[in-house]
């Protein structure tokens, strides 16, 4: 670890101001990812701005949305009564992530901002365009079992590791951010980006902007929602593939559907075409299989992750079956 400045801020304004004129400053809240990265010299911020004292922990219902403060803990959100009743998909996705200890430290904002777990990103002696632009993508022709099958580029095939974000993108959440010029609202689907030729940029947040909350619009998905995560052990592992499925049902007929995948792309991967294919249909395994087929269109595998092409549709079907109560 290199030496760095450490500053505490207790208001949004002070936090944002502390970042101005320092392109290499970072916010720190739970630190569950950033500290690991700093220990390995993968991220070497010269200044840390501790925002834990900023009052952004609240979860409140407002007109038509629920607003979750950026500093609300993952465990706090997962255990929140309103979230469990009205947005069970989010609670399930959160509980599928990390471990109880980490969920007790990690914040909603930090979860959104976490970096990929690609091994090449983590080892400073290996090539990685995300860590060191121009050094090449180690995973492209390397060990890419955990890597993306959608939206990749020749410069990066890393995946975003979050479970929470898969649920949030499915639920049409909005990220509210504050910057020197005031607040800005970013639809969740546009928050994270695909790697393209600039894999160093994970998302569309500007360096001097700060996430202050996440809003989820009211919805009718609370009765038929499921988060299905397949990983290499029963708990505490990143997804090989995960699927967030939420249905608004009228009897056996699907009125509305939301589907998103994790472990497959540089961002939480929303499956809008597959969603459309479900609307107005009966909830049957056959229908779910058709949706899964649509969802997987355009997927591209690499040497060690071809299994995801087969696993992906299976997980989609399982998630939908669970959401629809067919299991």
């Amino acid at each position: 670890m290199i030496q760095f400045q450490f500053e505490r801020a207790s208001t949004v304004k002070a936090s944002v101001n502390a970042m101005v004129n320092n392109g290499n400053a970072r916010f720190i809240a739970g630190g569950t990812n950033l500290v690991d990265l700093m220990k390995r010299n993968v991220m070497t911020p010269t200044k840390l701005v501790d925002i834990n004292a900023v009052p952004l922990k609240d979860i409140q219902q407002k007109n038509g949305v629920i607003s979750i403060g950026a500093l609300a803990l993952n465990s706090q959100v997962a255990d929140n009564k309103i979230i469990q009743e009205k947005y069970p998909l989010l609670s399930k996705a959160l509980n599928a992530g990390a471990s109880a200890q980490i969920r007790n430290m990690a914040t909603v904002g930090g979860n959104i901002m976490q970096r990929t777990r690609c091994s090449y990103f983590y080892d400073t002696t290996l090539p990685c365009n995300k860590r060191q632009p121009g050094s090449g993508c180690g995973a492209l022709d390397g060990l890419n079992r955990m890597h993306a099958i959608f939206g990749t580029s020749k410069d990066c095939i890393a995946v975003h590791p979050s479970d929470m974000c898969v649920a949030l993108v499915a639920l049409d959440a909005t990220v509210v951010v504050a910057g020197p010029k005031g607040e800005r609202r970013i639809p969740f689907e546009e928050f994270h980006r695909l790697p393209g030729s600039q894999p160093a940029k994970d998302n569309t947040l500007q360096n001097n902007e700060m996430i202050i909350s996440v809003e989820i619009p009211d919805n009718e998905f609370n009765k038929n929602a499921h988060y299905f995560k397949v990983r290499d052990r029963a708990s505490y592992a990143f997804a090989l593939i995960s699927v967030a499925a939420a249905l608004n049902m009228d009897g056996k007929v699907i009125k509305e559907a939301r589907l998103a995948m994790g472990g497959v792309a540089h961002k939480p991967w929303r499956l809008k075409e597959a969603e459309k294919s479900l609307v107005g249909k009966q909830a049957t395994e056959e229908v779910f299989k058709q949706a899964a087929e649509i969802a997987m269109q355009g997927a591209k595998a690499y040497k060690y992750n071809a299994f995801k092409l087969k696993l992906g549709p299976n997980v989609i079907v399982e998630a939908l079956k669970n959401a629809a109560g067919l299991v």
């Binding site: 091994s119 080892d123 002696t125 290996l126 052990r233 708990s235 505490y236």
Partner: peptide, 19 residues
Amino acid sequence: FGRYVTKDFGDYHVPVHAD
């Protein structure tokens, strides 16, 4: 590179309680 890519408990899995 002759180098391990799994070299922490995040990448190198051992059983957790749930297993």
